[in-house]
Amino acid sequence: ALNRGDKVRIKRTESYWYGDVGTVASVEKSGILYPVIVRFDRVNYNGFSGSASGVNTNNFAENELELVQAAA
């Protein structure tokens, strides 16, 4: 299972961040479909780089994520 702070690569092909590595911000335990919230260094097309207006978190299912580096 994934944990907060883990570095993960995104495998959801239609995602803006496909192939990117993000950090797990939190994992919901309530049984929702996309329980893993991942935070990225770059914002998506809703904002400009360096601006706070873009979105830099997204929810994924565990099977859409590949663990790159476990949290220390």
Rank of each mutant, 00 (worst) to 15 (best):
A1S: 12
A1H: 13
A1F: 13
A1E: 08
A1Q: 12
L2E: 04
L2S: 03
L2M: 05
N3E: 09
N3L: 09
N3Y: 13
N3K: 15
N3F: 12
N3D: 06
N3A: 12
N3V: 11
R4P: 12
R4F: 06
R4Y: 10
R4S: 08
R4D: 04
R4H: 07
R4L: 11
G5D: 03
G5N: 04
G5Q: 02
D6S: 04
D6W: 09
D6L: 04
K7H: 06
K7Q: 10
K7L: 12
K7F: 08
K7P: 02
K7R: 12
V8C: 07
V8Y: 00
R9G: 03
R9H: 03
I10M: 01
I10F: 02
I10C: 14
I10Y: 02
I10R: 02
I10T: 03
I10L: 14
I10K: 02
I10H: 02
K11I: 12
K11C: 12
K11N: 08
K11V: 06
K11Q: 07
K11L: 15
R12N: 11
R12M: 09
R12K: 08
R12G: 02
T13Q: 13
T13A: 12
T13F: 13
T13I: 15
T13N: 07
E14M: 10
E14W: 14
E14A: 14
E14I: 08
E14D: 14
S15H: 02
S15Q: 01
S15D: 06
S15V: 03
S15M: 01
S15T: 02
Y16W: 08
Y16N: 04
W17N: 00
W17H: 03
W17K: 01
Y18C: 05
Y18D: 02
Y18P: 00
Y18T: 03
Y18K: 02
Y18R: 02
Y18A: 04
Y18F: 09
Y18I: 02
G19C: 12
G19E: 05
G19W: 05
G19Y: 04
G19D: 08
D20V: 09
V21T: 07
V21S: 01
V21L: 06
V21A: 01
V21Y: 04
V21M: 04
G22A: 03
G22V: 02
T23D: 03
T23C: 11
T23F: 06
T23N: 02
T23L: 06
T23A: 03
T23I: 12
V24T: 01
V24L: 01
V24W: 02
V24I: 08
V24R: 15
V24N: 00
A25V: 15
A25Q: 15
A25W: 14
A25T: 11
A25G: 02
A25K: 07
S26P: 01
S26L: 10
S26V: 08
S26D: 11
V27G: 00
V27I: 10
V27W: 04
V27Y: 09
V27P: 01
V27M: 05
V27E: 01
E28I: 12
E28D: 13
E28N: 10
E28S: 12
E28G: 10
E28Y: 10
E28F: 11
E28Q: 12
E28P: 05
E28H: 08
K29P: 11
K29H: 12
K29A: 12
K29N: 11
K29G: 12
K29R: 13
S30G: 11
S30A: 11
S30P: 10
S30D: 15
G31V: 09
G31Y: 13
G31S: 11
G31E: 12
I32R: 09
I32Y: 10
I32S: 13
L33H: 08
L33S: 09
L33P: 13
L33Y: 04
L33V: 08
L33M: 10
L33F: 08
Y34A: 06
Y34T: 06
Y34R: 13
P35T: 13
P35G: 09
P35D: 06
P35I: 14
P35S: 13
P35Q: 13
V36F: 12
V36I: 14
V36G: 00
V36P: 00
V36T: 00
I37S: 09
I37Y: 06
I37T: 13
V38R: 00
V38F: 02
V38C: 04
R39C: 14
R39I: 12
R39P: 00
R39A: 08
F40N: 00
F40H: 00
F40P: 00
D41N: 08
D41Y: 09
D41G: 06
D41T: 13
D41V: 11
D41R: 10
D41C: 15
D41P: 05
D41W: 09
R42F: 04
R42I: 05
R42K: 11
R42P: 04
R42Q: 05
R42Y: 04
R42C: 12
V43E: 08
V43N: 05
V43I: 12
V43A: 06
N44C: 15
Y45C: 15
Y45D: 15
Y45F: 10
Y45S: 15
Y45G: 15
N46F: 09
N46D: 15
N46M: 08
G47A: 09
G47W: 06
G47Q: 08
F48E: 15
F48G: 15
F48V: 14
F48T: 15
F48A: 15
F48Y: 11
S49I: 14
S49M: 10
S49D: 15
S49L: 11
S49Q: 11
S49R: 04
S49P: 15
S49Y: 09
S49T: 13
G50E: 09
G50K: 03
G50W: 09
G50S: 07
G50D: 13
G50H: 07
G50P: 08
G50A: 10
G50T: 08
G50Q: 07
G50N: 09
S51Y: 07
S51K: 03
S51M: 10
S51T: 11
A52K: 08
A52H: 10
A52R: 03
A52N: 12
S53R: 04
S53T: 13
S53G: 11
S53H: 13
S53D: 13
S53I: 13
G54A: 07
G54L: 11
G54W: 07
V55W: 07
V55Q: 08
V55I: 13
N56L: 05
N56T: 07
N56C: 15
T57S: 07
T57E: 11
T57C: 14
T57F: 14
N58D: 15
N58H: 14
N59F: 07
N59A: 14
N59I: 05
N59R: 12
N59M: 11
N59V: 07
N59L: 05
F60H: 01
F60Y: 07
F60Q: 00
F60S: 00
A61T: 05
A61K: 08
A61I: 04
A61D: 07
A61L: 05
A61P: 00
A61R: 09
E62A: 12
E62N: 06
E62K: 06
N63Y: 14
N63E: 11
N63R: 08
N63A: 11
N63F: 12
E64C: 04
E64R: 01
E64Y: 02
L65M: 02
L65T: 12
L65P: 01
L65F: 02
L65E: 00
L65K: 00
E66P: 03
E66T: 06
E66R: 02
E66Y: 05
L67F: 07
L67H: 02
V68Y: 04
V68L: 09
V68M: 05
Q69I: 10
Q69L: 09
Q69E: 14
Q69S: 10
Q69M: 12
Q69D: 08
Q69A: 11
A70Q: 10
A70Y: 13
A70H: 10
A71F: 13
A71L: 07
A71G: 08
A71H: 10
A71R: 06
A71V: 10
A72Q: 12
A72E: 14
